[in-house]
Nucleic acid binder design. Structure first.
Lengths: 240, 240
DNA sequence: CAGTGGTCTAGACCACAAT
DNA sequence: TTGTGGTCTAGACCACTGT
């Protein structure tokens, strides 16, 4: 482990254990550099980490201060990592995820799908619909398109476990980011049939384009959730 | 303007103008340092900016590459700055926002509100409900709580223009970040009366805690939107 | 003015990946 | 082995703030 990460971790623990007063600045960069026997640039990089994670903020001419809510709530630490896939997300909570495959085809994309995946209409895509259960209860219908030439080796076994794991571990691709739209909808036939919605139950739909770290889109999907079982959360840490 | 920002801007423009091939790495850090007559650390900091904005990614042992979707779409640049308030957001689009004040009181918070704002139940808060119109059409009901001692000087004039502007320009406070939950709901009486929802129209509710850069919560709010007029968007750029 | 963080340098060595 | 980015140093000077 590199030095600035070690220092960053030590300081993070001190903050969490309230070893620094919340109303005063933490020790200045020069004294921290002396304490840890390193250059000031290294301290700066260690503190940069904590600023980016929303634990510290700097005031020029004054010092570096602790972000108050960061010590109390764990919100930031909990929610910073999203988009790791439903399976991973819930497995961490000890929940069991199972899947029923409603559709699994390879086809040419229509214009909308081709546009969102930045491919042309002659590049085949997988179209996948899965009903996903958490602890045996219907939880979400995922309707996903992926370029078949990019995300290779999809089969029923993969669909029953985790596509994300297949992409990262088997294909050794790196996720880059995502663009999401969240909206409320009236339920359609599928929702009523599989999510067991009443006809006047709203549905929360999350539309997502997923990107690799290269910027190439690998996934265009719609996830439809029962309104009483899902809340979309979003953490925003202001940078500047 | 500091040097690394200037360099970062120049390189950003080169990327956008496709002056670098999208399939090869951009020039390495040493040559860029020579080109710009600066040290390698300065180049590194310039490139860091672009990596954080999702325009570049690095591959150890290989080089630094352009994120493909960043050049085509403007998604990232458009949506990185949210949480600037509805007024600012829509004014940029040339839309006219007006407000009707449904409630404006000072009171002691109930437990839920006090918890979310990290205050005790004896600290007075403003309770504000505004129906906001865009181009004369009902758009959202905002139900907001703010600590009265922190966000001072709220009056009807402020409520009719922009609370965010009051906080940043008049009170000279800096926004830090936010934590949001988005859910689909059935409409309540207020929604039906003011948003003119049908009884079976879903409503998209955004619950938000807003923080100053100090980490102090300054706002706890619920925004209820017509399902046919609002989509919540979220951009995620993976860091690591 | 003194004290803080912000930037910048010119080099050194390390870690990783392809050849 | 070579070439890439990643880390780190020891110092310099700048920019901002309150006294």
């Amino acid at each position: 482990m590199v030095k600035y990460r070690q220092i960053s971790e030590i300081i993070r623990k001190r903050i969490m254990n309230k070893e620094y007063s919340a109303d005063e600045p933490i020790p200045n960069e020069i004294s921290l550099a002396e304490e840890f026997g390193c250059s000031r640039m290294t301290i700066k990089k260690a503190l940069d980490e904590l600023v980016m994670r929303g634990l510290l903020y700097r005031k020029r001419g004054h010092g570096t201060f602790i972000v108050k809510s960061a010590v109390d709530n764990d919100l930031i630490n909990v929610t910073v990592d999203e988009s790791v896939g439903l399976t991973n997300l819930l497995k961490l909570q000890g929940k069991k995820v199972t899947s029923k495959i409603l559709k699994f085809e390879v086809k040419f994309p229509d214009k909308e799908v081709a546009d969102q995946l930045s491919i042309d209409s002659k590049t085949p895509v997988y179209e996948i619909m899965r009903l996903r259960y958490v602890e045996g209860e219907p939880y979400v219908i995922e309707h996903t398109y992926m370029p078949a030439s990019l995300i290779t080796g999809i089969n029923e076994e993969v669909l029953h476990s985790s596509i994300y794991r297949h992409i990262t571990e088997t294909l050794k691709l790196t996720m880059g980011g995502s663009f999401r739209k969240v909206r409320a909808c009236k339920p359609n036939e599928w929702d009523i049939k599989y999510l067991e919605c009443a006809p006047d139950d709203p549905v929360l739909e999350v539309e997502q384009i997923g990107y690799l770290n290269t910027g190439v889109p690998f996934e265009y999907s719609f996830s439809r959730h029962r309104y009483d079982k899902f809340v979309f959360t979003s953490v925003n840490i202001r940078r500047n």
